[in-house]
């Protein structure tokens, strides 16, 4: 089991976002999280990435409790997040965006970092963009760079926040192919989205957030 979310609750002041929710994600599985605006989809993703603290419960990835871990570098190596707005570093080239985290973590040699970056550039089909800056890229290209950057540390779980919100139909299809390709390497994928078409196309399982809890877990017939 790659990801175990166990009875987590979160409130902002008196406003409960979700209460005692639990689910698991297997390696190579693609899970979509749906729900209306304000049901806590993004907050859940943020909790899973330690950008918000949970009030109770635990989030386990390969035995590491993300919800109690203070060391960002340990969390970053277990779970990655592709933000809705990508949040690329605008002053760094594509290659530098990819290199910055592993250079800091010093878990790989420079040669290994370059090799990993080249591999991801090929997988994500962003060849020729290595020296470009984020402002020179299209929305779809920025997203691929954001995915590549998140994959540099080879996390077990990769999360996406509304990955198709700013993309056209063709680019959405290409992103689906890329996500499947990543899942095939053993990565667990968690996607927050309200794009029904995209859910139908990519989800192996759908989790619906409603009324502070999970009301549905459907296994999608492929």
């Amino acid at each position: 089991m790659s990801l175990i979310v166990d009875k987590i609750s979160k409130a902002f002041g008196d406003v409960k976002v979700f209460e005692q929710i639990s689910f698991t994600v297997e390696p190579s599985e693609i899970v979509c999280i749906k729900g209306k605006s304000g049901e806590g989809k993004t907050t859940l993703l943020r909790c899973m990435n330690n950008l918000e603290t949970v009030d109770s419960g635990s989030i386990l990835i390969n035995g590491l409790d993300i919800s109690k871990e203070k060391d960002n570098s340990r969390v970053g190596q277990e779970i990655g997040l592709v933000f809705q707005g990508y949040n690329l570093f605008p002053h760094l080239s594509v290659m530098e965006n990819l290199r910055i985290a592993p250079v800091f973590l010093k878990k790989m040699t420079n040669e290994e970092i370059d090799e990993r970056a080249r591999e991801l550039i090929d997988t994500l089909e962003i060849n020729g963009k290595e020296d470009m800056y984020p402002y020179q890229l299209s929305g779809g290209q920025k997203q691929r760079v954001a995915i590549a950057r998140a994959c540099m540390l080879d996390p077990s779980v990769l999360c996406f926040d509304e990955p198709t919100s700013a993309l056209d139909y063709e680019t959405t299809k290409q992103i689906s192919i890329i996500i499947r390709r990543l899942a095939a390497t053993g990565m667990s994928i968690v996607i927050v989205t309200h794009d029904e078409q995209f859910v139908k196309e990519i989800a192996e399982r759908v989790i619906v957030l409603k009324d502070q809890g999970i009301i549905e877990i459907d296994r999608v017939e492929l």
């Binding site: 960002n72 570098s73 340990r74 969390v75 970053g76 985290a101 800091f104 973590l105 950057r149």
Partner: peptide
Amino acid sequence: DLGQYEAAKVLGMS
């Protein structure tokens, strides 16, 4: 933008 800090945090940077 706050997103720059958050991106760095999820990438494990201090």
